[in-house]
């Protein structure tokens, strides 16, 4: 169950209550999959640890922080994913 978190209402994600990611089972994603994040960034799945919560991704585009682009792996949490890109 996902209950509203006090103080979290400033994020666009929390305002919607549910996210697109609620419909995605991370276990079904394979490396190479492209995903859109809540902040508008696009990432590519590098390795799926198959824990259902996190993905190891690299940033292809990020409107807020171009410094993250490149081959470095980043941990992406399932609820920060809004859609398959």
């Amino acid at each position: 169950m996902h209950l509203p978190v006090p103080g979290a209402h400033t994020t666009a994600l929390a305002k919607r209550g549910a996210t697109m990611s609620d419909g995605i089972n991370l276990l079904q994603l394979e490396p190479g999959a492209r995903l859109r994040l809540a902040n508008g960034a696009i990432v590519e799945l590098v390795e799926n640890p198959r824990d259902g919560s996190w993905l190891l991704c690299r940033y292809l585009a990020d409107p807020t922080d171009p410094a993250v682009l490149g081959d470095e792996e980043h941990m992406i949490f399932v609820r920060d994913i809004t859609a398959l890109a």
């Binding site: 390795e47 824990d51 259902g52 919560s53 996190w54 190891l56 941990m75 949490f77």
Partner: peptide, 27 residues
């Protein structure tokens, strides 16, 4: 490469690419 807690999702890395010290909290 990761041990992720099913409860609230805290995730720990054991691989030097993700963490300086295995077991470090990465997620």
């Amino acid at each position: 490469r990761l041990f992720t807690c099913p409860y609230h999702g805290w995730s720990y890395g054991i691989d030097g690419k993700l963490v300086e010290r295995p077991g470090q909290l990465v997620g």
